[in-house]
Design a protein around this nucleic acid. Structure first.
Lengths: 181, 181
DNA sequence: CCAACCATGTAAGTTGTTACATGATTAA
DNA sequence: TTAATCATGTAACAACTTACATGGTTGG
């Protein structure tokens, strides 16, 4: 059976926008999909090799020595459409912050306060990051036609960060400022 | 080196509330922490064995044949406090929904609409589930003193679900109801 | 009496991370 | 000239999932 289909979806997806080297695929996944997707380095090359073996991408020499450019084939585009239609694979929840809050009674109040402060800072940093991404989006040439879809993913992050910020503020006053019974 | 520390934290955490069998540990993690944490079956027993070997829990025979009850030791409580103070291990993002939306231009509009409808339904179901959990919380005897912390984790889920619902509605009108250029 | 649930454990397989090895090219 | 970046790949390891195997207990 093939590699985790979602990795294939991500790789094939970025190659559907423009042909890239393996190194660039990784960079695009990090820079462009980074706020909602992650692939570790060691996944990219084996996945590209499988795609090539299956005729879903073509490999041709790049400008530099040893470098290859991968280009999606028609079969690859069909496969991508299939993959996108498949059911979303749910990520099992593993929220380390909430795990700590749940057992918060066991922690010194100061540690819990720090944790919530960090969360608040993180939410604000994420909100800031999204507005930077949005500003940069205007300049990103090959992605222009995807703009509305990309915008929707940024909006999702923004709303999630706002919710997290509201939660951190609210929880701080409920758990830290009001002493435990 | 020991098992992923966060699994240890979760297991030791539930045992800090009351002594349980391995089977019950799994059930509590599913039922009580389930909305923000997950441990697969095959993790629990090896983790308990390690905890026992390290003197962090004691094992004594349970009521049934072959059953064992694990009880946290003083060393175990100290270790739990340490683990809770450790930095949160961030979960690399892998949001299958946003992956599909990002490449939404490649999908038929009807598929995207279905995806967003599913998301909306899921958000509502989650909101409903949280109010059920909250109602049940009143009756949960051994967790009473953890009530405020538990409540905070539910609130986090609630705010996240609300944000997701708002996003799905907003995105549906932006991407599906307004035709693509 | 039979289905559902309680209970424990293992083994095989998949997935994902990290570190290593190697070297070309480019910009400061 | 030297540091950063581009570029590819592998190997070892760690983490996690799933299926299997086994059998006791309880409630309808």
């Amino acid at each position: 059976m093939a590699r985790a289909t979602q990795t294939t979806t991500a790789v094939l997806g970025v190659l559907s926008i423009e042909p890239l080297t393996g190194y660039e695929v990784r960079r695009v996944i990090g820079d462009v999909l980074g706020h909602f997707w992650h692939e570790s380095f060691g996944q990219i090359y084996p996945c590209l090799a499988e795609l090539e073996a299956g005729g879903l991408v073509n490999r041709r020499p790049g400008k530099r020595q040893r470098s290859s450019i991968y280009e999606i084939t028609t079969a690859g585009r069909d496969r991508l459409r299939e993959l996108l239609a498949e059911a979303v694979v749910p990520q099992p929840p593993r929220n380390g912050l909430l795990l700590r809050v749940f057992f918060g009674r066991t922690m010194p109040a100061a540690d819990l306060a720090d944790l919530l402060d960090d969360t608040e800072r993180d939410s604000r940093a994420r909100l800031e990051a999204y507005s930077v991404i949005r500003a940069g989006m205007v300049k990103e040439y090959p992605y222009a036609e995807h703009g509305r879809y990309w915008e929707a993913t940024i909006r999702a992050g923004e709303l999630a960060a706002q919710a997290q910020l509201a939660w951190a503020t609210e929880t701080r006053s409920a758990l830290v400022e009001v002493p435990a019974t």
